[in-house]
């Protein structure tokens, strides 16, 4: 942990302005990501989990700078990349690649598989001519695609195979970090397992770091090293896998984990049923964002925003309850 982390995100904010009225003035904003900090070390998997709309995909896209961020810093190997001009950012894009959720819309329907995988290699001038062909073939072997797929179009493949194409494209430029944005959520259960295993194997072979954005806690438990739990644009808890899954700390994490189905009908279940819906990120609640649904809510939660602090076991959590026993 003392070495410079591969990726560091500090106080990342992404607000999408809302325009309304006749003149299109800004009338508000969607606070999609509102001050998120975390690190990903080399060869490590960090999972970002949370329910739909909590901003986890926005974090991924903001790191890739698919849109400008509102505030905060993104550092790759200790170097800030969020404020670089496009020309200086381009060579660094080699190192951070992405695999998207939908294997159907993430591949250009009018490009051949070989060209899709070769695109980053050509862009970064990594390979030409016969070397390019060899590289593409090598990548296809690595992700388990048949060699004859080169000349075919994406629509000729199943969802799992398409996701392999997407992974090959992400591996092509020799990335250090792959952002998997719900990369297995759209797949069948059996195919999901294959892709997850492929990602784990690739991580072991190539020393890849993965930022695994997902809502599927069972998959996350299977492959991650650390987990960051997000709620309404903020991180509420970060912990190692074993710590988090065996002993969730933050009230939201507890509720989230209790919702995971257990494949044993006789097992005792203490489901924590949260009341109400997730508040709108356009008008997030004051104080702790979770206070409208938290079963342990008290006065301070409504007024003051809890900060992330170390609560032992290499875990950080943002909850006022952590301070209560010390004070009492």
């Amino acid at each position: 942990m003392t070495a410079t982390p591969l990726l560091e995100v500090r106080g990342l904010k992404k607000h999408f302005p809302l325009h309304g009225g006749l003149l299109g003035r800004q009338t508000g904003a969607v606070y999609a990501v509102d001050g998120v900090s975390f690190t990903v070390n080399k060869g490590e998997t960090l999972s970002v989990v949370g329910e739909s709309g909590c901003g986890k995909s926005t974090v991924g896209k903001a790191i890739l700078r698919l849109y400008p961020i509102t505030a905060g810093e993104v550092l790759l190997d200790g170097q800030r990349i969020d404020n670089l001009p496009a020309s200086e950012l381009r060579p660094l894009r080699r190192r951070v690649q992405v695999v998207f959720q939908d294997p159907f819309s993430s591949l250009n329907p009018r490009q051949r598989v070989g060209d899709i995988i070769a695109e980053p290699l050509v862009n970064f001038g990594i390979a030409h001519g016969s070397e390019l062909t060899d590289r593409v073939a090598g990548l296809m072997d690595k992700v388990g695609l048949p060699r004859d797929a080169v000349k075919r179009f994406p629509h000729e493949f199943s969802g799992g195979q398409r996701q392999r194409i997407g992974i090959a494209r992400a591996l092509a430029p020799g990335a250090d970090l792959i952002i998997c944005d719900e990369a297995v959520s759209a797949l069948d259960v059996s195919v999901k397992a294959q892709i997850v295993n492929l990602l784990s194997d690739l991580q072991d072979d190539l020393g890849l770091a993965l930022l695994f954005i997902s809502h599927d806690l069972a998959i996350v438990e299977h492959l991650t090293h650390r987990v960051a739990v997000m709620y309404l644009g903020k991180i509420v808890e970060v912990a190692d896998r074993a710590t988090l899954f065996s002993n969730p700390h933050h009230p939201y994490t507890r509720a989230l984990l209790s919702a995971v189905p257990v494949p044993d009908p006789t097992a005792p279940r203490n489901r924590i049923i949260l009341r109400g819906d997730v508040p709108s990120p356009i008008n997030p609640p004051s104080g702790c964002r979770f206070h409208t649904r938290c079963p342990f809510v008290f006065d301070r939660c409504r007024a003051e925003e809890p900060l992330l602090r170390d609560v032992g076991d290499g875990r950080i959590s943002a909850c006022h309850l952590d301070e209560v026993p010390a004070a009492a």
Binding site: K61, L64, L66, R90, P91, R93, R94, V96, Q97, V98, F100, Q101, D102, S105, S106, L107, N108, E119, P120, N123, F124, G166, R169, A172, P173
Partner: peptide, 12 residues
């Protein structure tokens, strides 16, 4: 479309 975003990420 995600494939355009992927192309941006791939340095196109």
């Amino acid at each position: 479309q995600p494939y355009v975003e992927a192309a941006v990420a791939a340095g196109t």
